[in-house]
Design a protein around this nucleic acid. Structure first.
Lengths: 192, 192
DNA sequence: GAAAAAAATTGACAAATGTCAATCGAAAGG
DNA sequence: CCTTTCGATTGACATTTGTCAATTTTTTTC
């Protein structure tokens, strides 16, 4: 399973086998079935998680029992609750598997060591953080400036893969609309 | 003006006067009157900007001429268009001064040098990035899961200062609602 | 492949938010 | 001090989106 991670890192940086070995020495592995939790609300997030295969989501559950998905993540993406991880506070979110998934976990402290010991990896992680920031910024922009329909169109364009693999109700949740509204966007009334 | 920046850095890290001197050697200064641009849509953002005083905003203008404010920033905050800065692409956003502002600019490349030469500063900047990520994540969560009223209440609670200094129409724009809707939230119909 | 469960659709209606125009009030400039 | 401009409010109405319940369709499980 670590091969996926190696390939991922090699694709983005120039790194030696020795260095990859160091990273592997800090890694733990985990397999999740559909619907299994990686993190539950109230828990403290301890790991930076790399997805070797599968499909995951991060979401909250509000007072009325409604789920709000803030993020999907799939192969070659990282997932964690950064707020909980960074500040050691209980997470507001749940993370679970939409599809059976294989994960590579790096403990918070070991991650720090790994990033310092293998600077190219540290740089890679910082680059990811920068890109994630930009992606979030753009999502904020979209969500405050677009109609439900535009949001859905953009979602399909940006994440065609998710549009196929994720149940519609979850996409609606990610977009901040109800499943019924999304269904109606997709099946407009015949115009006459 | 650099004193504000020094105080800011000293508050967050242990840093020597020599190191602060190095940082100063990379800094440029800029003063903006109300409504003056720091960055205009289409331009490439070249600087990391620290706000020594004043109040700034980042926003886009859509096809209908409507503004969408994605961020306010004030004293001791950083502002830039990270996407444009990072990737060298034309910015989708405008940045201008809501109030007369004093800025300290660090050119992209010089910033990199500064962060490497003064590691505590580098760490500080990375920490800020991490925190910004978390703030954005929380904003996304809020905007997909809250009503207009909740968003406004949270805004006032989180940024009481902005709530006083920023015109209501801009707050509405930040929240992704119309000024009329915000006005009505604030002045509910007498109930009988 | 039948039964059960989950997901998506649809209808009728309610609630929230947007649009446009008019008015009011405050404050900024000459 | 007056006038002009900008910001905020309000009303009437349109549009979008949500809610709830009933069906239909698809997928899963045995």
């Amino acid at each position: 399973m670590f091969e996926v991670f190696k390939a991922y890192v090699r694709r983005q940086t120039t790194i030696s086998d020795e260095e990859l070995g160091i990273l592997e020495s800090h890694a733990k592995f985990k397999k999740l079935r559909k619907k299994q939790y990686l993190l539950q609300e109230g828990d403290v997030c301890r790991y930076h998680c790399f997805i070797a295969s599968g499909l995951m989501r991060t979401y909250s559950v509000d007072g009325k029992g409604n789920e709000h998905i803030i993020r999907f993540a799939t192969k070659d993406w990282w997932i964690s609750d950064r707020e909980s991880l960074l500040f050691g506070v209980p997470s507001k979110f749940n993370i679970d598997a939409i599809e059976e998934s294989e994960l590579i976990l790096f403990d918070k402290d070991e991650m720090k060591v790994a990033m310092e010991t293998v600077p190219v990896f540290g740089q890679l992680v910082t680059d990811i953080l920068n890109k994630s920031f930009v992606i979030n910024q753009n999502r904020i922009h979209e969500v405050i400036s677009s109609t439900a329909e535009e949001k859905y169109q953009n979602f399909v364009k940006r994440y065609p893969d998710f549009a196929l693999r994720v149940p519609q109700a979850m996409i609606a949740s990610y977009l901040g609309i109800t499943p019924e509204t999304l269904s109606r966007l997709r099946n407009p009334k015949p115009k006459k």
